[in-house]
């Protein structure tokens, strides 16, 4: 009884503050090794949140908790809760298949399936039954490719292998693949680290546009990128969340000395 009341209250609260996902006391263990120490973080709806910090600070690990990708690693154990629209995603009643459809992911290295461009994008909608016939599939594929800014470049070779595209194109294909299932959140794990500056600019542009309709979490190594694309920034260090604030504030007036050092390039 009271649980339901608390839930209801929380959810109204979150709607007021427009929180899409919330992590409370999230710790991650790989076997005996602890990789993340009680992280609390709120991810605002329809905004871009950047996770920054030096290598091995736990930002990717944290992100993989948000769509339970850590489940695929046998030795991995997670404590704490993560909610999506006030719903605990680690609740046994939650279907991980549904969760991952709602929380999409783009990886560090472009990983298109060894199939045609068309099939790459159509894969998600098909397995989730979002399309009923060829025409609907065509529409979804075109819409997703268009939103990923790739359609014009590939419309004449939709049935050629996705692996034949350039690196930047491949990454945009992966973004198209992710948005084709209409996720609510898109997680991006250093999406530009394998790309050249021009391709990076294109993808950043794209992230900017996608913000209107999606909640985006992006892990990045590049301070400039975080500053360019995000509204909120969270700084991780050695598995701890050091500071979390509006991006402008983090980059102009950080509270924590660690953050300051990192941003000014004194370590990292």
């Amino acid at each position: 009884m009271s649980d339901a009341a608390v839930e209801a209250r929380l959810s109204t609260q979150e709607e007021e503050r427009d929180i899409k996902m919330r992590a409370r006391g999230v710790s991650v263990f790989y076997g005996q090794k602890q990789a993340l120490f009680g992280v609390d973080l709120e991810i605002p709806r329809h905004a871009v949140m950047a996770l920054i910090g030096p290598s091995g600070c736990g930002k990717s690990t944290f992100m993989r908790c948000l769509n339970r990708m850590n489940d695929t690693i046998d030795s991995c154990r997670i404590v704490g809760d993560v909610t999506l629209d006030a719903e605990d995603i680690y609740d046994p009643a939650i279907d991980v298949v549904e969760l991952r459809a709602r929380v999409g992911m783009v990886f560090q290295k472009p990983n298109p399936f060894p199939k045609s461009i068309y099939e790459n994008v159509a894969y998600g909608p098909r397995i989730h039954g979002l399309v009923r016939n060829r025409q609907e599939t065509d529409e979804v594929v075109e819409r997703s490719l268009t939103r990923a800014g790739l359609f014009k470049e590939v419309k004449d070779r939709l049935h050629e292998p996705g692996t034949g595209l350039s690196g930047g194109q491949q990454q945009r294909l992966c973004i198209a693949r992710a948005i084709a299932v209409s996720p609510e959140v898109i997680l991006m794990d250093e999406p530009c680290s394998a790309l050249d500056p021009i391709a990076t600019a294109t993808v950043e542009e794209l992230i900017h546009e996608l913000r209107e309709n999606f909640t985006i979490v992006i892990v990045t190594h590049s301070m400039q990128q975080a500053a360019r694309v995000s509204q909120r920034t969270a700084m991780f260090h050695l598995g701890n969340l050091v500071e979390e604030a509006d991006t402008d504030k983090i980059f102009t007036n950080p509270e924590d000395p660690l953050t300051q050092d990192y941003i000014t390039g004194r370590f990292g």
Partner: peptide, 8 residues
């Protein structure tokens, strides 16, 4: 890919 979809 249908023509109308492209236009829309």
């Amino acid at each position: 890919m249908s023509q109308s979809a492209t236009a829309a």
